[in-house]
Structure formats: C-alpha cells, structure tokens
Design a protein around this nucleic acid. Structure first.
Lengths: 191, 191
DNA sequence: TTGATTTATTGACAATCGTCAATGAACTTA
DNA sequence: TAAGTTCATTGACGATTGTCAATAAATCAA
C-alpha cells in the first residue's frame, strides 16, 4: 500500500532510495473507518493527506446541516489549505465516506522533507496546479450551469461517486436540497 | 513599477541581485487597456500574469452571456491553470476591467526561472497555497450561502470591487442574474 | 449641455427551489 | 424473519429566481 504513494510520486520525479526510505519512515499510512474524522471545525490542521484507497468528504456545518464541498478519491491530496498553511482553526470537516487508507503528511514532516529534499517543491507545485485547475473548473460550473446540468456532469464524469455516496450528500455538493435532487433525477428519467 | 513584483517576492524570499536582474530582463510589464483580453476561449495559455495595478476579470461565455468567475486585483497572480499547465485550449477569457499594468510570465521564461533558480519553486508553492485557500473558501460560499449572503460578504470584504465593476458582472460572479442582484440590493436598503 | 448609449431598476409572470410533512423503499440488526 | 432505522421520493405551498419588456438613471461623446 505504501508504494502506491511512491508510485504516484514516481510519475513526476525519479525518487532515489534515500527519498523513498525517508517517505516510508516519516509518512505513516493510517486506516480510517467510515464516518471517522480527519479534521473537525475549530481544529488546527496539523497535516495534509493522500488517499490511498477510499473517499474523504469535505463539508461545512451550517445551522446543523452538513454542506459538502468536495469528495477526495484515490490518488487525491486532501487539505484544508487555509487552516494548514495559516495555522488557524479549520472551518470545515474532513471525514471518511467509507473505510479508507490514508497517508498522513504531518506539517513537521513536510517541513523536513522540503528542507532535506528541495526538489520535492516540484511535486507540491504539480499537485497544487492540478488542484487549482479542478477548483477553477468547479467554480465555473457553479456560475455557468444549473443544478440539473451539474448533476448530469457528475453522472458522466464520476458515476462511481453516485454509487458510493448517500444522495443527500451529493445534493448539497451540487448546491441543492436532497428533495430537489430527487426531483431532478425523476425528471431526467422521464425524458 | 517593476519593483512592485520584486517587492512582493521579497516578502517570501530574499532575492539576490542576479535573480532580480533576471526577473527584470525576462518578465516584461505590459499595459493592458480596459476591455482588452489577455486570453480568449480556445487559445493556448502561453503565460500567467501578476497584477501590478488594475483588475483582471475571468469569465466564461455561455450562450452569448458572459459569466464572471473571478476578479484578480493588485498583487494577485492570474492563470487559467488548466490551459497553462496542460497546454490545452482555454475555456475562459481573461480581460482587463480597467487599464491595468501586468507582469507577464511566459511559459518558457517560467521554465528558465525554475531551472536556474530552483528555490523559486518555494514561491510558486506559497502563491498557489494562497490561491487554493481562496478557491476553497469560494466554493464553500456557493454551497453554504445564498445570493444575498454572498453579496453582503462582498460588500464587507471587497467594497472597492463594487465601485469599479459594473453590476451585471458582479451579478454573474455571485451566480445570479443582474435583475436579481438589483432586487437583493433594494431589499437590503429597506431593511 | 444635449443627445445617444449604456447600465440599473422595476413590474409581471412562469419556472425553479426550499421546507415541512408523509410515505415508501432499502438497509441493519437482533 | 421481523422490527427498527436510515434514506429516497412525493405532495403541497411559499419563497426565490430567471426572463422579457419597459422605464429610469447614469455615463459618455459630440
């Protein structure tokens, strides 16, 4: 399992033995059970994560209702950037949708990695560029498409999420209520 | 004007003379007139930008209507990440809201900078972390707040944008029609 | 300053969406 | 299997929003 992370990194950088060993020693893999939290509102984020298997959901708690903003899957990096980089209390929760295997990059470890192996900066740049591209796309979807179109986009590009995640979480992720999503689905079927 | 970019970088990295000269020589400052485009839909993004003065608007063209997704201001980096990093046609436009002074980081120049001064990777990481934090926040606003709340947030945090930008662009940025924003404003006044 | 153009507001109406409550379906657990 | 729990669907209704058209206000250019 560990080497899935290494494998991912190797796509962009030819790691040497020293680097690989350092990663294996300093980046633990933890098993997170369904519903378990990696980060809660108000906590300082002390790490970012890499999803080896499973799904991590990011959400906000608004008036007692969980509003999902993102699903992180296999080979995705997960971070509450504001809390992690500024070391301020997190506004969101990170929670496992199902039992997941997660690589934990502690903030101290990250500093050590970057100090000892500066070329890892390249990796973080690549990872972040990817993420920025995804977020820009996501924001554009909110501004340019209605809920039905956003749902159809999900059906087309991430059908597995629809199988693994309760519909009420998909609904808030699309920015609508669960009832509205249910009606959107009915309308699509009948057309 | 050039040294505003240098000054920004100096906040994070103590640049030496060689680095400063390299930047001055290789990162031109261009004057962009109001309404002028830095990037159009369908084009390959060959550069990213740094706003020295002015405002750059990012938008999509949907059924003939411009849907704004972002306003970049002084000291902001501007990039269509997908087009720039993957070198594929851009989905969005980048256009000056008013006459602006823009530093242009050509893709070739960026490669040269990073090769010659690897510690600039650190800078790109810091810039991107900031941006990711902003985008995460923005997505959360779409999911957790209604249009009125998003408008009030703008009034509180970016009042200058409301003075400089036509209301119909603010409207699509908030994800509503210009008429709806007008009514939101009336409602707020009367309360 | 005046006229032309652009931008913002308002009204009317239809479409969409959120909320609350009830029902039905699916999944758990004993 | 049966009962309990969670999740998805549906109906009713009110609130919000989009659209189209008209008007008012603001901006720009001659």
């Amino acid at each position: 399992m560990e080497n899935q992370l290494i494998k991912y990194f190797q796509k962009y950088l030819d790691l040497n033995q020293e680097e690989i060993e350092f990663l294996i020693e300093n980046v633990p893999i933890v098993e997170v059970r369904k519903e378990e939290a990696l980060l809660k509102e108000g906590e300082l984020s002390s790490a970012f994560y890499f999803v080896i298997t499973g799904i991590i959901r990011m959400f906000y708690l608004v008036d007692g209702v969980e509003k999902t903003t993102f699903f992180y899957e296999e080979n995705d990096f997960v971070s509450s950037y504001e809390s992690f980089t500024k070391q301020i209390p997190s506004k969101h929760y990170l929670q496992a949708v199902k039992n997941s295997s997660i690589a934990v990059f502690d903030i101290q470890v990250v500093a050590k990695i970057l100090k000892r192996f500066p070329r890892f900066e390249l990796l973080s740049r690549i990872v972040m560029e990817k993420e920025l591209s995804i977020y820009q796309d996501m924001i554009s979807h909110f501004v340019t498409r209605n809920a039905t179109q956003r749902y159809l986009n999900l059906v087309e590009h991430k059908p597995h999420l629809l199988r693994e995640i309760p519909q009420y979480d998909i609904a808030t992720y699309l920015g609508v209520s669960p009832e509205t999503l249910s009606r959107i689905r009915r309308k699509i079927k009948s057309s």
